[in-house]
Amino acid sequence: MPASWTFAVLRDDLRKPTVVEGATPVPDAGEALLRVDRVGLTANNVTYAVLGESMRYWDFFPAGIGPEWGVPPLWGFADVVESAAPGVKVGQRFYGYLPAASHLVVRPERVDVSGFRDASGHRAGLPSPYNAYRLTTGDRVYREDHEDLLVLLRPLFFTSFMLADQVADNDFYGAESVVFSSASSKTAYAAAYELRGRGPRLIGLTSSGNVAFTRSLGCYDEVLSYDEVDGLDAASVVYLDLSGVPATRSALRERFGDRLVRDIAVGLTNQVPNAEAAGEVFFAPVQMRKRRQDWGRDGLEDRFAAAWQRFAAAAGEWIEVRAGVGPDDLRRVWLDLVDGKVAARQGHVMRL
């Protein structure tokens, strides 16, 4: 394996990746060099690439080989292998937003016992949650034996946790039932796990091939395939759309009319943006800011950590972890994800 490498894809054709080899970066004064170690690879990472231009995800990790190429962002763990940054030491391990690459140079600021923020110039105008790196020894959520689950599920679970909190915070908008599309997706069933037993009936919609798996999770009161929408019966419904499939939204609107009290877009899958057609869009940082005001930063983190520990105990039985090593395995799994060939039960963890 080369000393340093970067995995990039054509921005306008995600099925065309390349691997660029080079010398190991050397940090300047105030910088640290991270060796990317363990990362998760899910459909969420393809979503980052699909929205790379509109949401500026391509801007986090410039490919350096031309504007037509982009480096997919991943979540995972990295170790400090060289540091010229005060307070950041060689050997420390951090969790955060990482490139599909062997190394990352960061410029740490606001360094404390919980971690740091990357103050690199090209990241200054980008969303701050993606610039935070958590030191494992100061992280309420971290457990060494949970690393695979953390790289696969933690970023999604944060969205799920805040989504469930917003729905419950609004008393389920007065609805009798909550309907999830893409119910076999990790974001959907994690939110359902949080809402289970707290009031309304939870109904999952998924493809016919994923019905059995989704039912086996026990997160939903009822699971139906998309072509069974006409069989749904509820006095009033909140729709949480994680699929972005126009036909599903149309079928629900036709079925329930005014009884569809909320239609909320939550990200996208299948590379189909869903926000434009929905009644509203869920954005996790908005609810996060509200809860920081309500509970304080420590209060929010304590609640999130407790929810994660509950969820991880269950999710460990649901996820079939598949391990890979290096750029060749990364390329293979990336193409499978882009083509929709990864089973809902599988989670791919890469050692880079």
Results as ranks from 00 to 15, higher is better:
L202C: 15
G121F: 15
F158M: 15
L33P: 07
E222P: 13
F213R: 00
Y193C: 09
M1P: 12
P17S: 03
V333L: 07
M1A: 12
R11F: 04
G257R: 09
R154T: 06
F180L: 02
R143V: 01
P27C: 13
S114F: 13
E53Y: 15
V261W: 00
P67N: 14
F256M: 04
T248P: 01
W295S: 12
A119Y: 00
P25T: 02
R249S: 14
M350G: 04
D139C: 00
P62Q: 06
W308S: 09
D112I: 02
P246L: 01
A307V: 04
L104A: 04
T269E: 13
A265K: 02
L14C: 06
L74R: 08
G199M: 06
T187M: 05
P2R: 06
A277I: 03
E228N: 02
D302G: 09
G340N: 12
A305I: 04
V338L: 01
V229S: 09
R143Q: 14
V237R: 05
L153N: 10
L153F: 02
I319C: 13
V90N: 06
Y226G: 03
V325S: 11
P27A: 09
V325C: 12
A312C: 04
P200N: 12
R331D: 10
R117D: 14
A313V: 08
I65T: 05
E31I: 08
Y226H: 04
V90M: 08
R259C: 06
E144R: 14
E21H: 12
F282R: 01
G70F: 13
S54P: 00
E320P: 08
D298A: 14
R215D: 14
N45R: 02
L195Y: 03
V50M: 13
L163Y: 07
A85S: 11
E320V: 02
G267N: 01
A168N: 09
F157L: 00
T18M: 13
L150E: 13
V261L: 01
D169N: 14
A307T: 09
A85K: 02
P273C: 11
L240S: 07
V20H: 12
D302P: 03
W69I: 07
H103Q: 03
Q293G: 15
S128G: 15
G87F: 11
E228R: 05
S128D: 15
A323T: 11
D329M: 05
F304Q: 10
W58H: 14
V321G: 08
V349L: 05
P285T: 12
G326V: 08
L74T: 11
Q287P: 04
S243Y: 13
T6A: 13
T269K: 05
E176S: 15
E320N: 11
F77M: 03
V261E: 08
V237N: 08
N210F: 09
G64P: 03
S181V: 10
G115F: 00
A85L: 03
A323D: 12
S216G: 07
V245M: 06
Q287S: 14
G326S: 02
R123V: 07
R198A: 07
A265Y: 01
R291C: 10
T42W: 03
L34A: 08
G138N: 13
G267L: 04
L242K: 03
K341P: 11
P273M: 07
K16V: 07
A278H: 06
K341C: 10
A29T: 15
M288C: 10
V178P: 01
L202G: 07
F172H: 01
W5A: 12
F161P: 11
N210W: 01
